[in-house]
Design a protein around this nucleic acid. Structure first.
Lengths: 352, 352
DNA sequence: GATTAGCACTCATTCAAGTCGAGTGCTAAC
DNA sequence: GTTAGCACTCGACTTGAATGAGTGCTAATC
């Protein structure tokens, strides 16, 4: 990333113009682009022969390549990267915000996220990907045990951001109302206000000691509650418009579209993407990321690009939204639509 | 369905044998099957010429057809139907139960269902489909309002089968603990033990009257609770192994696989299948259904077959499990695997 | 020294013609 | 009723030529 300026120095102005032309053209058509096309397309009046020489240089520098001898050129990952980093800004600003996405205000977060994914997918013709927010840094806000039946308790847990967790707890013998009251008091005084990740094994054993007499049943209940709190990261990832991948011949024909869609069913692979994005955003400013081809952690995705962003609903609820498309995806449009969606999410949740 | 006996009468024993041979062969290969193949494959020693005549008859009767002049025959929907209804029983019994699926006992129903779907998909190489159980006939078991913050209440609702629903309710002004206590009492005495569908608008207005003084806020809370109870059918449908559809050339090549996978993203279409199955099982005995081609409500699915079954976890929690495959799916295997899964679900939930 | 025109060469794509083989329907013989 | 034989159909595959987009290189031009 620090190489950006170096990269620009590597190319004189004319080379940049030609590279841009090649990429723009390829983004549109998906076909290799030849010197003749460029010589007409650009405003710089140059013959195809000159363009050929320049393109030859660009190939040597690794920005474009030929799929086979004597065919037009196609951008490499490096080419796309250069384009996204340096060449896009002007056009981007124009397009951005043109889109009008409308998210209905649903009161279930899950529903909102699913809708957001669908919206992205249908608007861009790529595949959208949305993760539920991570909550383990959120603080416990409310905790309550209630007796539902003779032998079963219900634990209800609310954390910041109004994420609600439930757990039914079966007990060997009936617990009397009095004990439940005490348990509630105990749990609340010790756990309330702590973040979920702070509620660890040590704390739990401490709690059990405090519980005093009722060791048998009570400790099992406390265990169950702890279980529910840490409920091994119920991260969900929704996708939408997976089959849009079929719309791009370069993926379809080579059979890679199938592989890609397959990995959309694979939570582990998706997590890689989500986590990469979250990590990058944790470190610094809240911006969009673009991962191109091999930059992606997931091997099956190396023929794609992904535009990701981190949404922040306040109360530390952060998750990832992504748009997956072919490498020649319309980055401006994808990023524009994404931005517009983020703004809308912001608006909805800031007002609350 | 009442035509079954008629159907048998329509075909003499030899025709049945030939039809069986055609279908079996086509199920295996996916290629049109010719007279010569049959003449060797079957035990009845007949020349290809005789077979040809018989096949010609079978075509006239609508059990098989030629994709183009002078090519082998392929079963029609009617052919498959005949096969499933009359010809399968012997082989089915042998195969059934061979499979050993192992569902880990998870305590979240959702997790169990997802796992079941995955299991079915990987075992059969088809696409699996699982719906969450319907709950509107279930009875309300527990209802509690709690104050989580100054201006927000949490409603927790438990229905038979330990399905838990939550709803955060924001209030304009703070509600004091006393009122909440009264509300809880009121709601529980009137609603407890009723099935969700019995809690209708009339009952709700009645409740509001009983509430007395606090009309303003209280009624809005009651509304919210009613909302949560009726939470417009939070039916979920999970799919697994959607991309298995790509494994079958007859779907892949014609591009229909894409359409089919598309409809897997479409909840409405899936609901059609689920509901059809539930309806049929509501009426009668608990058996597996097979829908072949046009018998399916969903138009995009007319090149598939679906094997469905209704699971019953007790407490009136019934949902649908389905296996979607090409028409030439291995019905025995699909039904066998399904049966084995159902047995296992039974075991897990009967023991509880 | 940079640019251009011209030319030979490469290589994927397209299309028609030809071959092959699986399969059928029909007729005549068994 | 069954079978053998034969002409015919039609998709699948192969081949080879034509096409055309595109390149690299060289020599002429600015």
């Amino acid at each position: 990333m620090a190489k950006e300026t170096a990269k620009i120095a590597e190319l004189d102005e004319r080379k940049v113009k030609i590279l841009t032309a090649v990429i723009r053209n390829y983004l549109e058509t998906g076909e290799p682009v030849g010197s003749r096309t460029i010589s007409k397309y650009t405003d710089l009046k140059l013959s195809s022969a000159t363009i050929r020489n320049e393109m030859s240089d660009l190939e040597e520098l690794g920005y474009i390549f030929q799929p086979h001898t004597s065919s037009g050129r196609i951008p490499t990952d490096k080419g796309y990267r250069f384009y996204v980093d340096n060449l896009m800004s002007e056009k981007e600003r124009e397009i951005q915000e043109k889109e009008e996405l409308i998210i209905e205000k649903a009161d279930k977060l899950e529903a909102v996220l699913k809708q957001a994914a669908k919206l992205l997918a249908t608007n861009t013709n790529y595949t959208a990907l949305v993760s539920t927010p991570e909550t383990h840094r959120n603080k416990l806000k409310f905790l309550q045990l209630s007796k539902v039946e003779k032998d079963s308790l219900l634990a209800v847990i609310v954390v910041e951001g109004n994420i609600i967790k439930n757990k039914m707890i079966h007990t060997e013998e009936e617990i009397d109302e009095d004990t439940i009251l005490k348990l509630n008091l105990l749990l609340n005084t010790h756990l309330n206000g702590l973040s979920l990740e702070e509620i660890n094994l040590g704390l739990i054993t401490l709690l059990k000691e405090r519980a005093g007499i009722h060791t048998e049943i009570v400790s099992s209940v406390i265990d169950a509650v702890a279980d529910a709190i840490r409920a091994d990261e119920d991260l969900e990832i929704y996708t939408s418009g997976a089959t849009n991948m079929f719309k791009y011949p370069e993926l379809m024909d080579s059979g890679k579209a199938t592989d890609i869609i397959n990995t959309f069913e694979n939570k582990e692979e998706l997590e890689k993407i989500v986590n990469a994005s979250l990590a990058e955003n944790n470190a610094g400013k809240n911006e969009m990321q673009v991962y191109i081809g091999k930059e992606m952690a997931s091997p099956a995705m190396q023929d794609c690009s992904v535009v990701t962003a981190t949404y922040d609903l306040g109360d530390g609820m952060r998750g990832t939204i992504g748009i997956v498309g072919p490498k020649r995806m319309d980055y401006e449009k994808a990023m524009g639509t994404m931005q517009s969606l983020m703004n809308q999410l912001d608006e909805i949740y800031k007002k609350k």
